[in-house]
Design a protein around this nucleic acid. Structure first.
Lengths: 150, 150
DNA sequence: AGCAAACCCGACAATGGTTGTCAGGTAACG
DNA sequence: CGTTACCTGACAACCATTGTCGGGTTTGCT
């Protein structure tokens, strides 16, 4: 339960983009409809993805978003880090600048937390959006007819 | 960063108890000093550990806490579950009552989240407080001379 | 030119969980 | 019978997250 909604939204949005084998970019409205994400919130997320260099935007009508790299060059780990920071389960087990354990040396728990950290990093690093798109069947399986007032 | 302070406190406290090869129980004050945890907060934590059946209490002067089972019968997984609930990184990937993904079928992300969940569960399940105590060197390495006003 | 679509940016209210504390109650030892 | 230490419930302060809004800028179309 430690993946935030925004991280979830970001990964879904990227998957939607990776599945779009179209020449035109995808509008946030389209992405929002397909991923069932509040539109205004998704805009925030896309901005962050853009400044992280994962997506590219085009403005004006007929604008929208598209991936900025090959899907095989975007890992889940990278996305999660952008929205959540360190992947360690606890502050004393981060790779960069671990917070010192007030118990001094000898805390054998540290080893376990580090193992959890490494296991999750390993999985998330191995998974690219090319993999995810392939597993999803190559196209958007869920029909885009979800709720949406207007 | 998803392990809460209280979970951290609980694991540290249990480790302190597992390392106490003494006949008398440990007072919350002692545990608090050795683990560098605010005393009043630690009391809350011990109560939860007690109602979960992991520790046992004795009241009155010369009272305190001791483990209620063999250290090898208490896993980290159990402790974390008591304080945090499900171990899945996201609500749609829990083992019991997963929250349905609004994107309908075909979300290939689910598989990854489940893999992360299983990896963490595996590690935490394998680790007992007997293991942790052994790794810690059998006794409390950090001297109990930490801060503490009174 | 002018309009409308869609991205861009900053700020914000509401929410909810976490953390630490407190006052008072109860059991046990000396 | 008093002190110690566990027990119980409630609570304020804090912090991150979530979703929203108003207004701006760029672009394509008529």
């Amino acid at each position: 339960m430690w993946i935030s909604k925004r991280t979830d939204y970001a990964t879904r949005a990227l998957l939607a983009l990776a599945l779009s084998h179209d020449d035109r970019p995808l509008k946030t409205q389209e992405v929002a409809a397909r991923t069932a994400v509040p539109h205004t919130t998704l805009e925030q997320v896309m901005l962050q993805l853009r400044s992280a260099g994962m997506v590219r935007s085009e403005r004006g009508p007929s604008g929208g978003y598209r991936l900025n790299r090959d899907p095989s060059a975007i890992t889940l780990e990278e996305v999660v880090r952008v929205f959540q920071g360190p992947l360690a389960p606890i502050a004393c087990a981060t790779r960069k600048h671990p917070e010192p354990c007030p118990m001094e040396v000898g805390c054998s728990l540290l080893g376990v937390w580090r193992r959890v950290r490494d296991a999750t990093i390993e999985i998330l690093q191995r998974t690219t959006f090319a993999d995810l798109a392939r597993e999803a069947g190559g196209s958007w399986l869920a029909p885009p007819l979800l709720q949406q007032g207007t």
